[in-house]
Amino acid sequence: MVAAFRRVVPPVVRRSRHALVVAAIGPVTALGGLLWAFIQPWRITLLHPHGKGVWYLIVEAPLLVIALGVLFTAFVARPLLHDLEELGG
């Protein structure tokens, strides 16, 4: 009965605290950027582009923070989590 149940519902993988830190740090960074964008929307010059120079349109600080969080999660944190699980961390 238990075996049948486990086939249907896979066991929840409990992550260690360290794995949680690695898993969360990128999304938390991206979330910080998102909150910043909401708190200071004038920092997103794409929302009001008239009269702004090209650099202010390219370098949108809150969006770059979000992008860094996403890229870090995809290219650093996920492979690291994989290695951590492989080594039984």
Binding site: H18, A19, V21, V22, I25, G26, T29, V59, A61, L64, V65, L68, F72, V76, A77, P79, L80, D83, L84, E86, L87, G89
Partner: peptide, 28 residues
């Protein structure tokens, strides 16, 4: 701002290295 992103990246990497330990961090 651009250098801030660089420092942010340094901080993120260092926190992850501390969290998993040098053995796992150096696996790749």
């Amino acid at each position: 701002w651009l250098f801030a992103l660089g420092f942010l990246m340094l901080g993120l990497c260092l926190v992850c290295e501390v969290a998993v330990g040098p053995e796992v961090w150096r696996k790749h």
